[in-house]
Amino acid sequence: MTNTTSSQRTDWHVSLIGGLKRRGAERMPADTVVITPVGGADLDLRDARIEEVTSVTKISLLGGVCLRVPADVTVEVEGFSLIGGRSVEPGPPDTPDASGRVVRVRNYSVIGGVDITRG
């Protein structure tokens, strides 16, 4: 189900088992919400068109977020996981926040963490 009534659209992905896998040069929506009891979110945003602020919210019992972003994007991570950690690869020291683009990741799960790489 996708809400596209405005430029600030939200993409909803709801499933019992399974997650979301996205990669390519498409435009990222302002908000992406993934709700699933079992399943993760695997997003490769290195070629995506990212606006100023993009958010990804992941809610599950079992499953985390694997995210790959361009080196010049700021990443903010928040949320809660009973079992699972956060791994955020830092950006290059000479060009932090160069593009002004921000990806906000919210992960709420019982088992599942967040893994963010740059490239």
Rank of each mutant, 00 (worst) to 15 (best):
T117S: 13
R86D: 11
G112T: 13
V38R: 01
T36M: 01
D44R: 10
T95V: 06
Y108E: 06
D97A: 10
M28G: 07
R27S: 13
G63H: 05
V38N: 00
G40V: 12
Y108A: 06
S6K: 06
R22W: 15
A71M: 03
S81D: 05
R27N: 11
G113H: 04
V33C: 07
E76A: 02
T117Y: 08
S87P: 02
R27E: 14
G18P: 00
T57L: 04
S109W: 01
G63T: 08
G19L: 07
C66H: 15
R106F: 00
I59N: 10
I116N: 01
P37A: 03
G39H: 02
P92W: 13
V77I: 14
V102D: 07
T10E: 11
A41Q: 10
T10W: 00
Y108S: 03
T54Y: 09
S109K: 05
E52G: 10
R49Q: 14
D44S: 11
D42R: 08
S60E: 05
R23A: 13
T117M: 04
D47P: 04
A30G: 12
P29C: 07
E89P: 04
V56K: 00
L20W: 05
T32E: 13
Y108R: 02
G100A: 11
E51N: 13
R101F: 01
V114F: 03
S81E: 03
K58P: 02
R49E: 14
I50G: 11
D31L: 12
P70M: 12
I59Q: 09
V53D: 03
E26T: 11
P29D: 13
G39C: 02
I35F: 04
E78G: 15
V34I: 15
P93C: 01
D44C: 09
A48P: 08
I50K: 15
D11T: 11
T117W: 05
L62E: 08
P96F: 08
L43N: 01
T5K: 14
